[in-house]
Simulated scan of single mutants.
Amino acid sequence: MVAVGSSSTEGTGASGPTMTYPAQLDQILEARFPGAKIDVVNKGIGGETAAGTLARLDRDVLALKPDLVIWQLGTNDALRNVDAKTFATQAVEGIERIRRSGADLLLLEPQFLPKQAGNATYAAYVDAVRALGAANGVPVFRRSAVMRYWLDHKQFTATTMLSGDQLHMTDASYHCLAELMANAIVPSAMPAVEPPSTNASAQAIKLLSGPTAVRNAEMPR
């Protein structure tokens, strides 16, 4: 498996390389399936946008011939106000290239950030990643929803869920993310998906362009 994306994948906020979510995911899966050969390779680079991932996709991801790619995307594109159409087009290109390689794909949406709770643009990127997944028949790990649940049910506070910069996760929240992701990756637990749509890019652009449409859009559960 190859985990690709930005600082949440690289592990900013973790106390060390073994506490990143890809490293903890590797440990969890190896414990669940003793004797199986499992390798989760961390190819995250802090600050990366979708364009950055595309530029190194062949070299850092597809060249490894992974069975599964976990692509974390959207956070930096949202924070940097990357053009909606550009982001959607790049995301669809990445999805298509990964699938043509024969690898399975799981999208990891942006994290929930209390400081961005009222930011319609940031929320639109979360919903756009979900829409891209639905349109292309790719499962999306709803990290934002999970993190909101943790806070609402007092499993974490903002200071225990996020590191001092209030942007990146901590050892504990990375561990919980890895546990839930392991549950999603087990074949019997992998959600069913719909066949790809031909207008994936248009759907994402519409969501990113209209905050009201984003809030009212019906997303698959």
Rank of each mutant, 00 (worst) to 15 (best):
A3Q: 08
K37D: 15
R56L: 05
P22G: 04
D58F: 07
K37S: 14
T49R: 07
V40Q: 09
L54E: 02
S7Q: 11
P22H: 00
A55S: 14
G35C: 13
E10N: 11
V2Y: 04
K43P: 00
T53E: 04
S6P: 06
E48K: 00
G47T: 04
T12V: 15
G16Q: 10
L29P: 06
V2K: 01
V41I: 15
S15V: 11
E10C: 04
L25T: 08
A31W: 06
A14T: 12
T18K: 13
K43V: 05
I45W: 00
N42W: 06
A14M: 09
G13Q: 08
Y21H: 08
Q24G: 11
G35L: 09
T12L: 12
T53H: 02
L29A: 08
F33S: 10
S15T: 15
A50D: 06
A3P: 03
T9Q: 08
G5P: 08
L25G: 08
E30N: 12
V41T: 11
L29E: 07
T49S: 07
S8Y: 09
G44R: 02
S6E: 11
T18C: 10
T49Q: 06
K37G: 03
N42F: 04
A23I: 02
A31E: 15
E30M: 14
T9E: 09
G13W: 01
E10Y: 09
V40I: 15
A55I: 01
N42G: 05
S7Y: 07
A50E: 07
T9A: 14
G44C: 03
G52F: 00
N42C: 05
T18N: 14
G46Q: 11
G35I: 04
L29F: 06
Q27L: 05
N42L: 10
G11T: 07
F33N: 10
L57K: 02
V40C: 09
D58C: 04
T18A: 13
L57M: 10
L25A: 12
G47P: 03
T18D: 15
K37T: 12
P34M: 05
A36E: 14
G5Y: 04
G11E: 05
I38L: 11
A36D: 12
K43W: 01
T9R: 05
L57G: 00
T12G: 09
Q24W: 07
V2P: 02
D39C: 11
L57Y: 02
L54Q: 02
A51Y: 05
G5S: 12
T49E: 04
G47N: 02
A31V: 04
P17K: 08
D58E: 13
S6Y: 00
G16N: 13
T9P: 01
K37R: 15
